[in-house]
Design a binder for these strands. Structure first.
Lengths: 129, 129
DNA sequence: TTTATATATGCCTTGACAAGTATATGCTCA
DNA sequence: TGAGCATATACTTGTCAAGGCATATATAAA
């Protein structure tokens, strides 16, 4: 269980991640919303935490879990090598990017100075062989 | 073993996919390049085929395997819900788009997951704060 | 203190799956 | 036809991880 891919292979973990995607949650909240037993939730959270998918902050007796970006970036990077296979959807991707430009970037988490500028119209050459 | 995520959890399968990413290959070619036994390759290919990641065409006694896009799209779609967490990464994505437009000519990827190279260039509008 | 609440962890069982070995199927050519 | 190559499948075994249950730890409240 080292790779990010093995981590997200587990459906319950994906559910937890999706849940945390909307906002941070305590263990108990996850437990109730996903209807899993508390030890199960805690164990999955441990795996996710050790893999860098989430981090927790202490709030009295509770622990609030929230997402961390790095592993997602990793997955995206791996996926990138195959992107040319669904060129049809490049446009969708592009639309997504534009949307991100307009839509906010609510947390300026990472450092990395983003210099950017809207690109406007990709002209792609040929699909695939 | 139903979800695409479980399929790619296996390192050898990811290696096969990466290999097929460069061009279609026969079972024997995969076997030699990845140094796996023939039954192992065949079994993984069966899993990949049944999950829609690859398809095969017959060439005499050989079977040539090549990628199919749908499962990758699925993964990308799932990943999309988390994209706002690494807005920093937009540039890399954009670079990728540009690269696709230019068409590529490089290959040479191994079994190991690709590490994201953070070069810089690109121009795209900056996220507002 | 004691009790209640929230979360983590340890042990155990069970099931899934990957790989090895052997064998079957299928195609080509002499 | 048979021999040889290419690929698929069957069967077995070992490993590992997910979940259940019990319990430990930690904080809060009474």
């Amino acid at each position: 269980m080292e790779s990010v891919f093995e981590i997200i292979a587990e459906p319950n973990r994906r559910a937890i991640l999706s849940l945390l995607g909307s906002s941070q949650q305590s263990v108990g909240e996850i437990e109730r919303q996903l209807r899993m037993t508390q030890p199960t939730v805690s164990k999955h959270l441990r795996v996710l935490r050790e893999a860098g998918f989430v981090e927790s902050t202490v709030d009295a007796q509770r622990r609030l879990y929230q997402l961390k970006p790095e592993p997602f970036q990793q997955m995206d990077a791996w996926l990138a090598q195959f992107r040319r296979f669904w060129s049809v959807h490049i446009d969708a991707l592009e639309r997504h990017l534009d949307r991100m430009d307009h839509e906010r970037a609510d947390r300026s988490n990472q450092s990395a100075p983003t210099k950017s500028k809207t690109k406007e119209k990709t002209t792609r050459s040929k699909p695939r062989t």
